[in-house]
């Protein structure tokens, strides 16, 4: 077994275990864990199953199979950050709506108080 394979098995195993532990602790919702889980499983499988990696890498024209692993990792990170951008945009929109509603409700309460109906 080459050193590079040992290294990639260790790294992807660590990522996988870390993701599992975070899910177990409820650190993130399952929805967000899904992509991480998928990424770590795929990387782990391809690190252990060298022949599958060689086969896939060759199919895509990679002469050095481990670099295919890097590309996959990069692709997953890209997907995950893209997912985050969408989630953040959603959250900030919801946050704005809440803020507006809070301002509107406070104004209404102030008016009711002033009118002495409270």
């Amino acid at each position: 077994m080459q050193l590079v394979q040992v290294l990639s098995i260790i790294v992807s195993a660590l990522i996988f275990l870390f993701v599992i532990e975070l899910i177990r602790r409820g650190a993130f919702k399952e929805k967000y864990a899904l992509l991480w889980l998928l990424a770590s499983v795929v990387l782990l499988v391809l690190s252990i199953w060298r022949r599958l990696l060689d086969y896939l890498a060759l199919m895509f024209g990679f002469f050095y199979p481990p670099s295919f692993l890097f590309l996959l990792g990069f692709g997953f990170l890209l997907l995950i950050t893209l997912h985050f951008s969408i989630v953040i945009s959603n959250l900030s929109e919801k946050n704005k709506k809440l803020t507006q509603e809070l301002g509107l409700i406070r104004e209404e309460i102030d008016r009711i108080k002033k009118a002495g109906k409270f």
């Binding site: 704005k96 803020t99 507006q100 809070l102 301002g103 509107l104 406070r106 104004e107 102030d110 008016r111």
Partner: peptide
């Protein structure tokens, strides 16, 4: 006059929109 205090700075667009929602209500 009437006053709406927004809890934090949401920008000119969000502020004007708050006024627009108020106008409807």
């Amino acid at each position: 006059c009437r006053v709406i205090d927004l809890p934090y700075n949401i920008g000119i667009g969000g502020s004007v929109q708050t006024g627009i929602i108020y106008a409807i209500r």
